[in-house]
Design a protein around this nucleic acid. Structure first.
Lengths: 336, 336
DNA sequence: TTGTATGCGTTATCAT
DNA sequence: ATGATAACGCATACAA
C-alpha cells in the first residue's frame, strides 16, 4: 500500500519533474541549478502544491527556527503586550513562537521548559517565577525581569530610574508627602528596584514618604485599611501615591473613589507599566511607561545572537512618564 | 569527527545501558519491557539527561501535537483572553501552540498558514480577516467568529441572542428610546448578528431606536458628532446605548464625559465582550459577556475530534449580562 | 552542473 | 521479550 492522500514530498516533486531528488532540494533552497531544470521543478512544485516539511529539515539541520516564550498569561496587559511584540520581533526574523502560558506555576514552568527542549527549540525567552528552573546548558535562554545567573542575560526596563522618575514627577507636581504601595511577588526580581529608585528620588527632592508593602498571601483589603487610617477630618495625610503597577493603581483608584477622595485634586497617583490596550485614548492612570516593544526586540536579539561572549548579563531599557488623568498637568495631551 | 556537545539520543542511551535501540524506545513509550532492562534504561536516561526529540517523532509519526492559532494580536482584551484559554485547553490535551499574530493583515494570515502547514501542525484555529484564505484540505481548521464554508466549523458566542439581551436589559432598566453604535469590520462575520438581535429585541419590547454604523475607514469622531447632534437643551434624546464592543463603549464613555452627559443617570450604556483583565474588580462598562473559556475549549475539541462527520458548521455558545457601572441596577454585585 | 547515497532520531516490523 | 533493520523527508558530501 502506497501513501496517497498524504502531502507530497520532494520525492514526488522529483518524479513529477523527471529530475533527481537533490535537484529539487537545491531549487527549494535557492541553490544554483540549471534554468531548464529549475523551471520544470518549479512547475512540479506548483502542480503538486508542494511544501517543505520543517520537521524533516529541523531533524537534519538540528535547527528549528522556533523559540518558546514562557509567560504567566496573555491576559494581563503587560504580558499580553510583551507576547505580541516578541511575536512580531520573531516573525521579522522568520522564527516561529511556541506560546507557553505558565499561570505563575513553577511546576508548569518546568514542564514547559522540558517540552520546549524536546521540541528542540532554538531558544527560550522566559518571564518566570521558579527560582530553580532546570534548563539545558546548550539551550539559549533570555530572562525577562529576573536575573538567573551571569550566564543568562536578563532584559528589563530601568526599574530603578522608573521609581526615581515617579518621585521626581510627584515632587514637580507639588507633592510634599507621598506614599509607596506595592504588592506582588517577593521573589528577587528587577521590578523590586522600583522601590529603591522611588526612595532615592524622594530623598533627593526632599519628599517625605511612607510605604505599604503587601506580601504574596496578604489580602488586598489591607490597602483600603492603610488608606482609611491616613484619613483625618476627611483629608488624606499624603498628597501623592506611587503604585508599583498600573493594575494596583487601578485598584487604589477605585478605593479612593469609594472613600470620596478626589484624584488628582486631593491626591495624585502614578502607576507603572503604561500599557494602553486600545491605543492612545485608553488609560487608567498616569504612569511610568515600560518600552515593551524595545524590550521584546532586545530579547530576541540577545537570544539569537551567535556570539555568546557578547551577551551582557543585564540590559535595562529607558522608561518614560505618561500623563493619564490621575496627576495634575499643565494640560492633558491631545487625544487621538 | 563525532558529535559530542550535542544532546544525547536514544542510541547513546542504548549504548550506556548496554541494550538495543528498540528497547529504549519501548521504555520511553511505556511499552512492556523486562524489569531488569527497564531499570538499566531508566538509569541511563537519568544519567545522560536524555529527552526525546519531538522532531524525529513527528517526522516518523506524521503527527506533531502542535496547533497554530491565528489571531490579530494578543493585546486587545478579547483576543488576549481567547489566546490564553486556547493555550490552556491545548495544554490540557498535551498539545503545543504556535502563536501567529496576524495584525488583521490578510497577507500575513496567508503566510502564517503556509508556515503552519510546513510545520506540519495537526490543525489550525483562526480568527481571520482574509475572505479567501487558501488552506490545505487535509489540515483541520476551526474558525472563530466567521463562517468559512460548511466544511470548516465556526465557533462563536450567540451574537444574535447577545444583541437581543442588550435590548431587553435596556428596556427592563427603563429605557424608552435607544441607540445602536457599531464600528469595525464590514466582513460578513458572526458578530454582525448583534445588530439584528438588538433590533429584534427592541421591536419585541416596543423600544424605538436609531443606529450609527461606521465603516472601516471612517473616523471615530463621527460618533462624537452623532451624539452631539442628539443633544437638545443639554439633554440627550436617547436614554440607552448599545455598543457593539466594550472597546467602543469605553470610547463612547469618554465622549459622554466630555459632553457632560452622566452615565448611567442620563443615559445607560451596554457593551459587548465582557473581558475583565484584572479579575472581578475590573470593568469599564456593563456588558454582554462572551463565554471565552467555553469557546476556547470548543475550538480545541472540534479541531482535534477524529470523526470529521461530527463537526457542526456553526456552534453558538450562550452569552450572559454583567453589570459594570454604566447601567442602573437594583444593586451592584459584591466586589471581591 | 546533476544524480546518488548516507544519516539525522525515532518507531515499527521483523527475526531471533 | 529483545535485538537488528528499514523507513519517515530532507540536506549534503561525494561520485558521475
Amino acid at each position: 500500500m502506497k501513501k496517497d492522500f498524504s502531502t507530497p514530498t520532494m520525492k514526488d516533486v522529483a518524479k513529477e519533474a523527471g529530475v533527481a531528488l537533490g535537484t529539487v532540494s537545491k531549487v527549494v533552497n535557492g541553490l544554483p541549478v540549471g534554468d531548464s531544470y529549475r523551471i520544470r521543478v518549479e512547475a512540479a512544485i506548483q502542480k503538486l502544491n508542494y511544501q517543505v516539511n520543517s520537521y524533516a529539515q529541523g531533524l537534519k539541520a538540528n535547527k528549528t527556527y522556533t523559540v518558546a516564550l514562557l509567560i504567566p498569561n496573555t491576559i494581563e496587559p503587560f504580558y499580553a503586550s510583551l507576547t505580541y511584540y516578541i511575536n512580531v520581533a520573531l516573525m521579522k526574523k522568520r522564527y516561529r513562537m511556541l506560546l507557553c502560558a505558565t499561570d505563575y506555576d513553577p511546576r508548569q514552568e518546568q514542564e514547559y521548559i522540558m517540552m520546549a527542549q524536546q521540541n528542540k527549540v532554538d531558544g527560550i525567552i522566559g518571564l518566570t517565577y521558579n527560582p530553580n528552573l532546570i534548563v539545558d546548558e546548550n539551550t539559549p535562554f533570555v530572562a525577562i525581569d529576573r536575573s538567573m545567573g551571569s550566564k543568562i542575560p536578563c532584559v528589563a526596563c530601568d526599574n530603578f530610574a522608573g521609581g526615581q522618575l515617579a518621585a521626581e514627577k510627584l515632587a514637580d507636581l507639588g507633592c510634599k508627602h507621598v506614599a509607596f504601595l506595592r504588592s506582588g511577588s517577593t521573589l528577587d526580581n528587577e521590578p523590586n528596584k522600583r522601590k529603591a529608585g522611588f526612595e532615592t528620588g524622594c530623598l533627593s527632592r526632599g519628599l517625605s514618604y511612607e510605604m505599604k508593602i503587601l506580601n504574596d498571601g496578604d489580602p488586598f483589603e489591607e490597602f483600603e485599611h492603610f488608606i482609611s487610617e491616613h484619613i483625618h477630618d476627611g483629608r488624606l495625610s499624603f498628597d501623592g501615591i506611587f503604585c508599583v503597577t498600573d493594575r494596583l493603581a487601578y485598584h487604589i483608584l477605585s478605593i479612593l473613589h469609594r472613600l470620596q477622595i478626589r484624584v488628582p485634586e486631593d491626591v495624585q497617583l502614578i502607576g507603572f507599566d503604561g500599557i494602553r490596550t486600545f491605543g492612545s485614548i485608553d488609560y487608567h492612570c498616569s504612569t511610568i511607561v515600560q518600552p515593551v516593544s524595545d524590550m521584546a526586540e532586545m530579547c530576541v536579539d540577545l537570544l539569537l545572537r551567535e556570539n555568546t561572549m557578547a551577551k551582557p548579563p543585564l540590559v535595562c531599557l529607558p522608561v518614560t512618564y505618561a500623563y493619564g488623568g490621575t496627576t495634575l498637568e499643565e494640560k492633558a495631551p491631545a487625544n487621538c
